[in-house]
């Protein structure tokens, strides 16, 4: 067992209850990392610069930032020299090790549990840029929490985009959970206020607040978000207990700027990585982890209500590395 295996055991120590589902869901992106790296290994009899160039390509095309890629490759090269590895096959494990460690060293929180208020109402705030899948993710998350026996209420705080409130309402009806709706162009802070008041009255366990998508460069909109965040804090002590940033797996290097701006406005506890059922790998989460230490807690793998699963680093990294094109 390599370092990777040992570390994995140490960190995860538990059986991943969802691992079967994970494998099925990530079919498109996961698949045959080993096969493809082996194909690469087969073409190279010894490890040389060209070999590392191709490795670099695999990683960059997964949207891992170029600086991190260069570091990981450098580290791997060093390891190859120190351990005198000449067989490309042996490198594969080293590489996965390096990436795993890279994510792990970004912070201690490898946990995917959502932070909840132990004695009372918990508030979850969901933020992100336009079109990443906030509303759909909220519906999926509500579904998960409801299944755990929690009483969940939704607050439709996107009063800006046409149809956004209706979209969440349709989900709420399907899930049979209560929803507090904002009126068109209503100040989202006041929607949150009403939502939380109502949730207290109805003795809810968890309120999930939707917010309008906004580009992180829009100062006014980011200020508005900070205010929404403050309003929640005034209503319930310690709220929002979890702020989740939704990042689209197709996002490129801009993801880091997104995360740092949103972190400034509201603080970010975790990431939901959406649209992982496509061919994108979402490698940007490694850069975000490195620069800001924010962990991923859930990934979205489809349009159906139960297509939201807990993040699993091991499966993710294998999936990430399967971009290699057959030639």
């Amino acid at each position: 067992m390599g370092f990777f295996g040992k570390l994995k055991e140490k960190i995860f120590g538990k059986n991943n209850k969802q691992s079967d589902k994970y494998v099925a869901a990530l079919g498109k992106s996961r698949s045959n990392f080993a096969d493809k790296l082996n194909a690469l290994a087969a073409r190279y009899r010894k490890v040389d610069e060209d070999y590392f160039d191709e490795l670099e390509e695999i990683l960059v095309e997964a949207d891992i930032g170029v600086k991190i890629v260069m570091e990981i490759i450098e580290e791997t090269k060093k390891e190859v020299r120190l351990s005198n590895i000449s067989d490309p096959k042996e490198i594969n494990e080293t590489l996965v090790d390096k990436m795993f460690v890279y994510y792990a060293k970004g912070g201690d929180d490898m946990d995917t549990e959502i932070k909840l208020n132990k004695d009372g109402l918990s508030v979850i705030l969901v933020v992100g840029v336009n079109g990443v899948g906030k509303t759909t993710s909220i519906a999926k998350l509500a579904n998960l929490l409801k299944k755990e026996g929690k009483k969940v209420m939704l607050v439709a705080g996107d009063t800006f985009r046409a149809g956004a409130v209706e979209q969440l309402e349709i989900w709420a009806n399907r899930l049979d959970v209560p929803i507090i709706k904002g009126k068109e162009k209503e100040d989202p802070s006041s929607v949150y206020y009403r939502g939380v008041e109502e949730a207290k009255k109805q003795n809810m366990d968890i309120v999930i607040c939707d917010s309008a998508g906004r580009l992180q460069t829009k100062v006014n909109l980011m200020n508005e978000l900070a205010k929404m965040h403050r309003v929640l804090g005034k209503e319930v002590e310690g709220a929002p207990h979890e702020v989740m940033l939704v990042i689209d797996a197709t996002t490129g290097q801009n993801g880091v700027l997104q995360a740092s701006s949103f972190a400034k406005a509201t603080g970010i506890d975790s990431i939901i990585l959406t649209k992982m059922d496509g061919t994108s790998k979402g490698g940007i989460i490694l850069s975000i982890r490195e620069e800001l230490g924010i962990p991923v807690k859930y990934i979205g793998v489809g349009e159906k209500i139960d297509d939201l699963i807990e993040f699993d680093l091991e499966n993710y990294i294998y999936g990430l590395c399967s971009t290699m094109e057959e030639e």
């Binding site: 997964a62 197709t250 490129g252």
Partner: peptide
């Protein structure tokens, strides 16, 4: 195409 999209946009 979203201006923020990454490497995979060409495949798309």
């Amino acid at each position: 195409v979203d201006a923020m999209s990454g490497q995979d946009s060409v495949n798309v």
